[in-house]
């Protein structure tokens, strides 16, 4: 466990000292801040614009960070031969993979909390200034739903990091990037697979589509951004099941990465 934490911490330090991360975060903050300007010209839809734009910025930047740092996660260590240092120490391969995953997950947690905090301040500001309008148009300020939406976004990052990790453990960053992006898009539209399957008459093909549906990540289920604006039931049960699904799916991905990584040779 200590080994895993040491690897995780070092991964966090690496990300922390990566300039790319800061430029992305800066971009996110600019996007969040710019929502104020858009909101001011939005015909009284302050809260909606700020939340929509802000939550999208957090999700977008979070996913970009997950994908970019995730796809280099394992490959970079092999490429730069730092694995020789790691594995000449009493480190098991799965400890390394798990540590890497946790390290980047923690990085994303810190980033998401930071971005979420800034966004919350801005939401709070619009609420103070235009509270009456907001309640008039949307029937409430839905702070809890706002935080739940950010939490769900973070769950999605956990899965995206896992996907990137799987590909990172056997192919080059460019290829990983491509594959991860592919799977990400499929995941965002996974529901369509099922709808499509329901329209297929051929039983075999239909079964196949259903299996594919069950296997691909249901990333669209982590989008509750609308509820953060209009309110809606994100009840504890939904949070529980969605979290459980995210954790199980992320475990599958980490486990798969471990299996692949166990077989790798460091030449």
């Amino acid at each position: 466990m200590k080994t895993i934490l040491a690897v995780a911490y070092n991964t966090f330090v690496e990300a922390k000292r990566d300039r790319v991360l800061y430029s992305l975060l800066l971009f996110a903050f600019l996007m969040i801040l710019s929502s104020l300007i858009f909101a001011s010209i939005s015909a009284e839809q302050y809260n909606k614009i700020v939340k929509d734009l802000g939550l999208t910025a957090i999700s977008l930047i979070g996913i970009v960070i997950s994908v970019f740092l995730g796809t280099g996660l394992v490959h970079k260590e092999i490429d730069k031969k730092t694995v020789y240092n790691i594995f000449s120490k009493p480190v098991r391969r799965y400890e390394f993979v798990v540590g890497k995953y946790l390290g980047l997950s923690f990085t994303l947690l810190v980033n998401t909390v930071a971005m979420g905090f800034i966004l919350f301040l801005i939401v709070l500001y619009t609420e103070l200034r235009h509270g009456d309008f907001i309640r008039f148009y949307y029937g409430g300020n839905y702070f809890m739903e706002f935080f739940k939406a950010i939490y769900f976004e973070y769950l999605e990052f956990l899965i995206v990091i896992g996907i990137a990790l799987v590909f990172s453990s056997f192919t080059t960053p460019i290829m990983s990037l491509l594959f991860t992006f592919f799977l990400f898009v499929i995941g965002r539209f996974s529901g369509d697979i099922l709808i499509f399957a329901e329209g297929v008459k051929n039983r075999v093909l239909r079964g196949l589509l259903e299996v594919i549906y069950r296997v691909v990540p249901h990333l669209e289920k982590f989008d509750v951004r609308r509820e953060a604006v209009y309110g809606g039931s994100i009840n504890p049960e939904l949070i529980l099941y969605t979290t459980a699904y995210a954790v199980i799916y992320a475990s599958v991905l980490v486990f798969l990465s471990i299996i692949i990584f166990e077989k790798r040779e460091f030449r």
């Binding site: 069950r214 289920k221 099941y241 199980i248 486990f255 299996i259």
Partner: peptide
Amino acid sequence: GLLVIAFLLVVSIPFQKRVEGMRGKF
């Protein structure tokens, strides 16, 4: 290893279905 993964995926199906039940498949 793959058996374990298949098992985990199967375990995830009830959760998938509960979420679908609450949020719709589409």
